[in-house]
Design a binder for these strands. Structure first.
Lengths: 165, 165
DNA sequence: TATTTAACCAAGTACTTTACTAGGTTATTT
DNA sequence: AAATAACCTAGTAAAGTACTTGGTTAAATA
């Protein structure tokens, strides 16, 4: 199966998007800062998410990304599928040619497992994640951290603004 | 999560072992031929399986490997765990330090998924796999192929034996 | 007792993927 | 016109996978 940091990053970024979609589009720079994912890597991931029409983009200043559907219509499995080729525990992508053209001994086992994982992740929407206590807690912490960082800049700029008067 | 060809190979090899354990220990050379896995790679995998006491070895001619427990006491999850470090969908191995020392937004989601996968694979024993129709079918095919290959040698050696009389 | 067998062991390597960097161009707002 | 942020391409260090090579050791067989 293909479920690595790549898929985790994609889901984390999409959840960040879902959490901050109140005030217009969210820039990848913001997500990068909050979630600690490199901006350029996010760009590559969002290119794939856009191709699968999970997000839509707005260019220019104040631009960024928006979910292309409602919270409860985007599921974790779709996000993971978008950035990896597939959520698939078999080595042959279900083609039954695992062992030099023929079915390998454990082919069906991995098919069953793939279904299991896919079913599980297909049932979890971004809306569900947004409403989870543990998610809200982490999101809160991240917003506080962001305020502290932004606060330092804001304070100095406020001071500068006062000095100018 | 860490569920790649490595784990698949290990489970396939262990299932082969379970299927052919009637007539004494099974050599890795046999498993290599039947399952199309390189002998040296199998040696590396079985070194780990032996460390986890899933198999025991018999050296010398006629030697090979045996399951160290009954069929129904060895589970797929144990095999996968033995060759990889862990069956773990989180990036931090459950240590909650996914995002530079702190918990990432989706940490709990991946914990849930890990549990899900582990539960699923913990319930499937080698005995269960051995009794599956699809497994028996593939095993039958592989044994036929082996007989064809061995048959060529056996036939010529039988002819040779007859000529000697 | 010599030979064969097969486990056991160590080092290295081609290949792939991941996560990221660098260095752009294009569209849109201010 | 300048700034912003999406969009795009190429390259790369690090890690893991699957495998090869070339041994050594223990046990059965001839």
């Amino acid at each position: 199966m293909r479920l690595t940091t790549k898929g985790r990053y994609a889901v984390t970024a999409m959840l960040d998007l879902a959490l901050h979609s109140d005030n217009g589009p969210v820039s990848l720079a913001d997500i990068s800062l909050r979630q600690g994912i490199s901006l350029s890597y996010l760009e590559q991931l969002f290119a794939k998410l856009r191709k699968q029409t999970l997000v839509s983009s707005v260019r220019g200043p104040g631009g960024g990304y928006r979910l292309s559907r409602a919270n409860d219509q985007i599921f974790v499995a779709q996000i993971v599928d978008a950035v990896n080729e597939s959520v698939d525990a078999t080595g042959c992508k279900g083609k039954n040619d695992c062992q030099s053209g023929t079915t390998c001994l454990t082919h069906h086992l991995w098919c069953d497992l793939s279904d299991q994982i896919h079913d599980f992740l297909s049932q979890i929407s971004l809306a569900q994640l947004v409403s989870r206590k543990d998610v809200r807690l982490v999101a809160q912490r991240q917003e506080n951290e962001q305020l502290v960082h932004a606060g330092e800049i804001d304070q100095s700029s406020k001071i500068n603004a006062e000095l100018l008067n």
